[in-house]
């Protein structure tokens, strides 16, 4: 359903030009939970953000269900973005809006009438099991609760695709597990395709059906976790991560192990 073709994105910093994403292509099937894992600075977040064009690639195409998003005008792009949910490491809720009004926001943008908004907001809150927090402000919520509200906010627009940018990196291990179960449920019950960027093995290992390993702006290797046996990891880092998954919990840590062995 989602095809990235030859995505190139570079930034010009004080020390010259960097190709943060260098000619990356990948294909996400309908119903996949697709993981992109990599060390910090590998370009995985930038790649994720090119999908809804928060970062516009210098070249390349983003095809979502037969439409090249890079070719859309401003208005059409806004409509297309309405079909793509997104959650973030630091949640990014509107702090001066209550939980109810936060979830209402995507519907207000889309011009959904007030009565229908109410039904859909309560429905979304029920999915993340936080009906009792309707009138609370985000500052009064825990990190895990904030992320659940962010998920409800993404779901209320009934997206086809959900982008998750390090969704559990600000959370403790227990809460991480809880959020991952919510994501898995959403994928199974609501048939929403999910793309997750993370540097934590636990995240991709536990719920992803496919994983791309990203290194210095390119995809080093893609593994189909559903049929892991046929796809033996080739690169050293992938072996470390996927054969000793429990040992190497974070990619940065795995790289540290590799370097120590050199």
């Amino acid at each position: 359903m989602l095809e990235l073709q030859n995505i190139l994105k570079s930034f010009t910093g004080a020390d010259g030009r960097h190709d943060v994403v260098n000619n990356v292509s990948l294909s996400v099937g309908k119903g996949d939970i697709y993981g992109i894992i990599g060390a910090s600075g590998a370009g995985k977040s930038t790649l994720l953000r090119t999908i809804n064009l928060l970062e516009r690639p210098d070249s390349g195409e983003v095809w979502l269900e037969g439409v090249d998003l890079t070719k859309l005008g401003k208005r059409e792009l806004r409509l297309a973005r309405g079909q793509i949910g997104m959650i973030f490491q630091h949640f990014h809720l509107i702090e001066n809006r209550t939980v109810y009004d936060n979830i209402s926001f995507p519907l207000e943008i889309a011009g959904v009438p007030k009565k229908e908004r109410r039904e859909r907001i309560l429905e979304s809150l029920a999915i993340v099991d936080l009906q009792d927090k309707v009138l609370v402000y985000p500052a009064k919520l825990s990190g895990g609760q904030k992320q659940r509200i962010a998920i409800a906010r993404a779901l209320v627009a009934r997206p086809k695709l959900l982008l998750c940018d390090e969704p559990t990196s600000a959370l403790d291990p227990d809460t991480t597990g809880q959020i991952l179960r919510f994501l898995q449920d959403i994928n199974r019950k609501l048939h929403i395709t999910i793309v997750i960027v993370s540097h934590e093995m636990e995240v991709v290992g536990s719920i992803c059906s496919k994983v791309s390993l990203m290194e210095r702006g390119v995809i080093a290797e893609t593994l189909d976790l559903a049929e892991r046996k046929q796809h033996e990891p080739k690169s050293q880092i992938a072996k470390l991560l996927f054969n000793h998954g429990q040992e190497a919990k974070e990619v940065d840590y795995a790289y540290g192990l590799l370097r120590a062995n050199d």
């Binding site: 928060l54 973030f88 990014h92 702090e95 943008i109």
Partner: peptide
């Protein structure tokens, strides 16, 4: 917070 603004952009806000 820039992140909140980007979240709104990602949701398709003008």
């Amino acid at each position: 917070n820039r992140g909140v603004i980007q979240a709104a952009e990602a949701m398709g806000a003008s």
